[in-house]
Amino acid sequence: MERSFVVGLPLDELVAYLEDFGRAEEWDPGTLRCVRLDEGPVRPGARWRNTSRFRGRTTDLEYRLVEREPARLMFVGENKTVTATDDLGFEAESASLTRLNYRASLRFKGLAKLATPFLRAEFERLGDAVAERLPAAATRRRA
């Protein structure tokens, strides 16, 4: 799933907002709870436990920040049935606007792989909801 949209924040502020994956509760409609598992500054290796609901089922994934660059963040979440990757690229549109290129993927493991084709439409709907909700959540945080 890929979405590209503009957020009313400068690039560095948007990256700072999104690098704390615990804020997924604010912008990801599938996230019920997201709690940091370690302490200290957010940097590659930081971890969160994300509890989400997808297709009526609740699941926990342990996410970690695997890449943090000035214009890119990558998180990987995993449990016994799925690996989820959130890859966020940032481009300054102006001094106060940033284009977010958001790519999310799910890779199912074992027998769960068989469900992949049936989940695409729902995953796409979730992407639409993120694209709608994230810009408002990020700018509201700034106010």
Rank of each mutant, 00 (worst) to 15 (best):
G110I: 06
A143W: 11
L114R: 08
L14W: 02
A115C: 06
E2I: 12
E39D: 12
L114G: 11
T98N: 09
R53N: 11
G127Q: 06
G30F: 02
E13Y: 08
G110L: 07
E25L: 00
F54Y: 09
A138M: 05
R140P: 00
L61I: 01
R33S: 10
A46E: 04
P29L: 04
A84Y: 03
E67M: 10
P44M: 07
R57W: 12
R72C: 07
D38I: 08
L111F: 11
A104M: 10
L65I: 07
L32A: 05
R23N: 04
R141L: 13
T59E: 14
D20F: 02
P44S: 11
S96Y: 06
T98Q: 04
E19G: 04
P117D: 12
A84H: 05
K109L: 04
D87V: 06
L88Y: 04
V6I: 15
A137Q: 02
P70T: 07
A46R: 04
P70C: 11
A138R: 03
R140A: 15
S96H: 12
G8F: 08
G56R: 07
A121H: 11
R47Y: 02
A104G: 08
G56F: 05
E124N: 14
E26Q: 03
F5G: 06
E2S: 13
S94L: 14
E69S: 14
F108T: 05
R120H: 12
